[in-house]
Amino acid sequence: MKRVKIQCNGRQQTLAEDTTLAELLDDLGLPADSVVAEINKKIIDRDQYATFKLSSGDQVELIRFVGGG
């Protein structure tokens, strides 16, 4: 199976081909609704998480929020 290598919050990570952003968040145990995702310096709309496929070389920055204020 082909793999893709990405940088996620500064760490290299290897994923199965065609992994979506939503799947990556699920793997990381992060609730998608509370995460802001920037991929290659572009903010990804929430409604694209399920369809956005990660490619080799992608620079992914995830900012996860926890509740309370």
Partner: peptide, 8 residues
């Protein structure tokens, strides 16, 4: 906000 979804 209190709600993490709204924070995001």
């Amino acid at each position: 906000f209190d709600d993490p979804t709204m924070k995001a």
